[in-house]
Design a protein around this nucleic acid. Structure first.
Length: 453
DNA sequence: GGGCATGATTACCG
DNA sequence: CGGTAATCATGCCC
């Protein structure tokens, strides 16, 4: 701002006249009102103007030569000065258009997204924030199969990131180069025509705007690429992917230990999801939602929810088929409970398969025997009836265990509910209730025989 | 390749 | 909104 007039004046000074006192003699003479050779001067000026007007018709070399000639013309400084004065007056009008443009909301959005996606952020940590989230969520490394898919995503993302940065750098470099070039050009031109720094600034601004619009295109296409990548990634979520064994065990364990009320609360689901190493797709979704500030309610069809929904239905549909599984997990839960209590206050952890071990559960004399006895109570393996008694097995186990060792502490709250109470509030207990109590001979068999076979 | 297992989706309900 | 039931679509095993 303060240096605005400097350039112009300095150039004016080159001409040797910061004002009329410096006007060349012939100009002063001319201005002083018609000398003897006034016509000659007019002729001179006419020539110059003619030359200027026809300059576009000339070749570049000619023009350069002519330019040089004009530059060296004795009238040049005077003309330059006049132009400077005119410019001085008009430059005021330019000044008005020099307001700060507000940050483009769309550009901000793109920037935010790129930053959030880890594309434009700091290079650290392999890039993607989603990756970090996934890594944090998968914790114990259960989701081994996820990690391949996940690293694939990460690799692609970092590819995008790399391209983005390269392109951005290129653009910036080009922008700088072009700006310098234009500035040099303007400076060069400022020798022949008055150019204020303000004008250069403005020009630079225009160039930057142009380049930033190009940059925006780059950002936009990068965003698109990320979106495509992610949508493809999320599509992978649609593709059915079996949970790994450990996850299934955890879920089953919860299911069978809460058989009387297999409806995990949101917290429980979350907990289970965490324990099972929730799918990458879900991690991404969560991440995405966090970014967009949406509520997590959009996550309702979580894999865990799906699993429990499917499990409930399929269990109910064919209890006999799940009998063995139910027994296994019931026993395991018992053992877990026993272990938990023996180890002190490990309450409220129905899903700790490691404590019981897979095959080791039957080694526990207490619960093992209990389990066997309960199993034998069922008599012969008659799908429906046995299935119908699963709950009673679990309950019996629980009951006996609590009697023998006071293990109730190790049982979850829902397990404390009496099956009958649950039975009253919903249809869940209809199938697996120990209805054999009411009609031991006919009840369960007649109710479930068709479903089990 | 067929069939079963199983996760996800959809329609519907209370 | 969360549940059930039916169904789809895919993975996996033989």
């Amino acid at each position: 701002m303060d240096e605005q007039p400097r350039l112009m004046h300095s150039h004016a000074g080159v001409g040797g006249m910061a004002g009329h006192p410096g006007l060349p003699q012939h100009m002063q003479e001319s201005a002083g009102g018609g000398g003897a050779d006034g016509d000659g001067r007019k002729q001179d000026i006419g020539d110059i103007l003619q030359q200027i007007m026809t300059i576009t018709d000339q070749s570049l070399d000619e023009a350069q030569a002519r330019k040089h000639a004009l530059n060296c013309h004795r009238m040049k400084p005077a003309l330059f000065n006049v132009l400077c004065e005119i410019k001085e007056k008009t430059v005021l009008s330019i000044r008005g258009s020099q307001e700060e443009e507000p940050p483009d909301p769309q550009l901000m959005r793109l920037d935010n997204m790129l930053l959030a996606e880890g594309v434009s952020g700091p290079e650290k940590g392999g890039g993607s924030a989603a990756a970090a989230a996934a890594a944090a969520a998968s914790g114990g490394g259960i989701g081994a199969d996820n990690s391949t898919e996940h690293s694939d995503y990460r690799a692609k993302l970092s590819q995008i990131r790399q391209i983005y940065h390269t392109e951005l750098e290129k653009y910036e470099q080009a922008c700088n180069e072009f700006t310098t070039h234009v500035m040099n050009l303007l400076r060069e031109q400022s020798r022949t025509r008055p150019i204020s720094p303000k004008e250069i600034e403005r020009m630079v601004g225009i160039i930057h705007r142009k380049f930033s619009s190009i940059q925006m295109q780059l950002k936009q296409s990068t965003c698109e690429a990320v979106m495509i990548l992610r949508s493809r990634f999320l599509d992978a979520r649609r593709k059915r992917r079996n949970f790994n064994k450990q996850a299934t065990e955890i879920l089953n364990e919860y299911f069978y230990s809460h058989l009387s009320n297999p409806y995990p609360s949101e917290e429980a689901k979350e907990e289970l999801a965490k324990k099972c190493a929730i799918t990458v797709a879900q991690v991404i979704t969560t991440h995405q939602l966090k970014l967009s500030g949406k509520k997590t309610s959009l996550l309702t069809p979580t894999p865990v929810s799906n699993w429990f929904g499917n499990k409930r239905i399929r269990y109910k549909k064919n209890i006999g088929k799940f009998q063995e599984e139910a027994n296994m997990y019931a026993a395991r839960t018992a053992v877990t409970a026993a272990n938990a209590s023996s180890h002190g206050s490990q309450a409220n952890s129905p899903s700790t398969p490691n404590s019981a071990g897979s095959g080791a559960s039957f080694n526990m004399s207490n619960s093992g025997d209990l389990f066997m006895s309960v199993q034998s109570l069922n008599g012969d393996y008659q799908g429906a009836q046995v299935g119908a008694n699963v709950q009673s097995q679990v309950d019996t186990l629980r009951h006996v265990i609590s009697q023998t060792g006071g293990y109730s502490e190790a049982l979850t709250a829902s397990q404390m509910y009496s099956p009958q109470g649950i039975n009253a509030n919903g249809g869940w207990q209809d199938a697996p209730t120990p209805s054999s109590v009411t009609s031991p001979t006919e009840g369960p068999g007649s109710v479930h025989s068709d479903t089990s076979n």
